[in-house]
């Protein structure tokens, strides 16, 4: 009951411009702890930008993002908003994990090294402790034997699972997944989706941007449909996919059906 009163993530009136182009036009979205929410919508609808704002990789011009009771990214002083200092941004970023479309593993580090870097430098754990956590997470994503491999020696699916381990090892309150299967060969998509599914089943809070409609339907508690920088529909998957209320969502679903 208290959890529903205080959502883990609350986005209020989020506005974002690139130059004169408005990509987010007042987005409101709340996530409870352990909830899995998928955002669907066509390219350019602002889904990815929304995730990047939550992880403070993008600045935004209006609205608030509150994570676990803390307003992130900005402070208000004498009625004006200021971006906070880099050190504070980094601390707030470490509360969310991000998995990118193109994996973005550190190419000079092994799989274990990728997972360990944040544990060592951000959470300031000792080498042995960091290694133990890294090995546990690599095992969790099915890569126990690949700790010493460099990213270039791994398949796309394996790289993405290392990226998932890297994000989750930091013990984030919220994990953001940005089209995590879009850069993968078709036969590698399922292993990554299975990994995400099992993390969701373990009670992680996930905000997912995806083009995999079947996956969104299977894994999510709620699905959000975005178009042109706004949330058009927000509801349980059965309703979003089975009974779209808006013309635009119905059209989108028709076009993505394969």
């Amino acid at each position: 009951m208290t959890e529903t009163l205080h959502p883990l993530l609350e986005i209020r009136g989020l506005r974002k411009q690139f130059g004169t182009v408005e990509v987010l036009k007042g987005v409101d979205l709340a996530l409870n702890k352990r909830e899995v929410v998928s955002i669907i919508g066509s390219s350019g609808s602002g889904k990815t930008t929304l995730l990047r704002c939550v992880n403070l990789l993008e600045e935004f011009q209006g609205g608030d993002i509150v994570l676990d009771g803390e307003t992130i990214g900005y402070r208000i002083s004498k009625g004006r908003r200021y971006r906070i200092r880099d050190r504070d941004l980094s601390r707030q970023r470490s509360m969310t994990g991000m998995v990118f479309q193109s994996f973005n593993l550190f190419p000079h580090l092994t799989a274990a090294g990728n997972v360990m870097l944040g544990l060592r430098k951000v959470r300031r754990l000792g080498r042995d402790e960091a290694r133990a956590i890294a090995e546990a997470w690599l095992g969790r994503v099915g890569l126990a034997q690949r700790g010493d491999h460099y990213p270039s020696q791994l398949s796309g699916g394996q790289q993405q699972r290392v990226a998932i381990a890297r994000a989750l090892a930091m013990d984030p309150k919220l994990v953001l997944l940005d089209e995590v299967t879009s850069a993968l060969d078709p036969e590698l998509v399922q292993e990554v989706l299975n990994t995400v599914k099992s993390i969701a089943d373990d009670g992680a809070t996930l905000l997912i941007v995806t083009h995999e409609m079947r996956f969104a339907r299977d894994v999510s508690n709620r699905v959000v449909f975005m178009e042109q920088g706004q949330i058009v529909e927000d509801g349980p998957p059965a309703e979003i996919f089975g009974n779209p209320r808006s013309q635009r969502l119905a059209e989108f679903l028709r076009n993505t059906r394969t």
């Binding site: 992880n55 990789l57 880099d86 050190r87 980094s90 601390r91 970023r93 470490s94 969310t96 994990g97 991000m98 990118f100 193109s102 973005n104 593993l105 550190f106 190419p107 000079h108 870097l117 944040g118 430098k121 951000v122 990226a163 890297r166 994000a167 930091m170």
Partner: peptide
């Protein structure tokens, strides 16, 4: 994207420079 991945796990700008950007 590799630099952003460093920022995303919570490294500061300086730490990202030392541990990610410089070695690559």
């Amino acid at each position: 994207g590799v630099v952003e991945a460093g920022r995303a796990i919570g490294l500061t700008r300086f730490q990202t420079g030392i541990w990610v950007t410089a070695p690559v």
